[in-house]
């Protein structure tokens, strides 16, 4: 048994068709990660110690336990304590929250790179706390870390096959179902691998270029 072009060409459109679902999940989870990551960053910086410690523990716990088990927890266990989510929402929330802990590290590195003088100047100008953040700190902290944030979009994209475990028919699940139907896994699984490579590699190159440009614009190692 070896590669069968006819079969490969026949199943390619079937697999390719789920691309919109995959893209939807990726961007959904990314939005959750960006927003929730920012909330975590602020909570972590809070001067109310119990809050910042709790958030620190939460981040460490989420970061060091498998997203797959977290997914099962959200999808199978949460409904029993009254929170029912459909598989798409459960998947988007789990991936989004898991990677929000990584994203919050990225935000933190951006914020830490802002010089103390900026905070002092904002204070001297009598800015309120929210003005300081929205007008002084974040506009300087976020742009330099955009390439790093972009990396996590690609990471999330590559994590979407995980959702097959709760029955979301994304690339891998689709290919696996086709493979099981025909008892031929080689072609569909190879197509999935190639699709991931073709979609993520150019994006990675794009982000590399963005990073170079960003380093020039904001100065490398300004942290």
């Amino acid at each position: 048994m070896s590669w069968n072009w006819e079969f490969a060409l026949k199943v390619f459109p079937e697999i390719f068709n789920v691309i919109w679902l995959v893209i939807g999940i990726t961007f959904g989870a990314y939005a959750v990660a960006l927003v929730f990551g920012l909330i975590l960053t602020f909570a972590r910086r809070s001067s109310f110690k119990p809050l910042s410690w709790t958030v620190y523990g939460f981040i460490e716990f989420i970061r060091s336990t498998p997203p797959l088990v977290q997914l099962f927890f959200v999808y199978f266990a949460l409904p029993l304590i009254g929170i029912s989510l459909n598989k798409y929402v459960a998947g988007i929330l789990t991936l989004g929250i898991h990677y929000s802990t990584y994203v919050s590290e990225v935000y933190r590195s951006g914020i830490d790179s802002i010089e103390k003088g900026q905070w002092e100047a904002a204070k001297a100008l009598n800015f309120t706390k929210s003005q300081t953040w929205s007008k002084v700190i974040l506009p300087q902290a976020i742009p330099p870390v955009i390439p790093m944030l972009g990396n996590y979009l690609i990471v999330l994209f590559k994590e979407t096959p995980l959702l097959m475990a709760i029955g979301v028919v994304e690339f891998l699940q689709k290919a696996f179902l086709i493979g099981a139907d025909h008892f031929k896994y080689l072609e569909p699984l190879t197509i999935v691998g190639l699709l991931f490579l073709l979609l993520s590699y150019p994006s990675a190159l794009l982000i590399n270029r963005l990073e170079k440009w960003s380093n020039q614009a904001y100065g490398k190692g300004s942290r």
Binding site: K158, P161, M164, L189, G193, L197
Partner: peptide, 8 residues
């Protein structure tokens, strides 16, 4: 690095 661990 360009493809998913689970796919591999």
């Amino acid at each position: 690095r360009g493809t998913s661990l689970l796919v591999q």
